[in-house]
Amino acid sequence: MFDNREQLVGVSVQGNIVSPEYPPLPASPYVIGADGRPQLLPSQGGIVYNVRVGDSAFEWLADLVQPGVSIRAPTEPANQALNVLSCLGNEAIVLSGEATGSRGTVIGKSGRFAEHVIVDFAPETLERLAIEDKVLVRAFGRSLALTDYTDVQLKSISPQLLDVLDIEPAGPGALTVPVAAEVPAFLVGAGSGLMNESGCIQIQTDHRSALAEHGLEELRLGDVVAVRDYDSRWGNGYLKDAVCVGVVVHGDSPRAGYGPGLTVIMASTANRIRPVLRSERNIADLLGLRTSVAAPA
């Protein structure tokens, strides 16, 4: 399968490890669940020591937990560049502090919900990282396109990740993409209508039996997942027979309309992307970030 990777430009973008943040007083620190119950939970940001890509997206007492390390650039235009240009699978390098020189991998982008880039590091590196340490991303992959599949858009995906997705031709202009799960359009909540080059769309989980019915309760952070009847080419919205493929980048939430977030990596209309269900479609495995990822208990 041919693509245009030789024409792509690699460029540095950079952020600092961001502290968890809560709205200043007099705002309350609670997140309001779909049932109206206020809850106090860890949210996005910081260095998360015990949740890593490959782990369950559900079993944590947290709101939208981002595994590993979340980074953000100090100014808004630079942060937009960090968020738009970073691609899943890109290499990240620590540039300050005790862990200077340590390398990690971009595993997600949270978009409007936090505007963070999410980076995986080995557990021993996490121990040496500090909030505000500088992390540089070698952004590479923007404008990546498959030569013979012009109706399939690639976005936020590095050539390294593209190479391990195991996509295959499925007739003129169409591809099969192995995925861990398929999400029906009605379960996409927050993220519809928002810009998708820097962010994610959320699989809403308030109605648990709908979630179970579609086999989504076992989702793991890092899973490659398809959304049916959903158009993510120039935004995010419902369109029959359109399909997008995303990677689960953050955990569940008690809020209405929220749940595990998908950073979109492929988008098309008219059945150009044909998802096929396959087990073990997780970027922790595919990119070799973890040697063995235990299935959820």
Binding site: I32, G33, A34, D35, G36, F186, L187, G189, Q204, D206, H207, S209, A210, R255, A256, G257, Y258
Partner: peptide, 13 residues
Amino acid sequence: RDQDHTWGRGYFE
């Protein structure tokens, strides 16, 4: 239909 907007906004059968 099937949208609970009592607090947030989301699908609920």
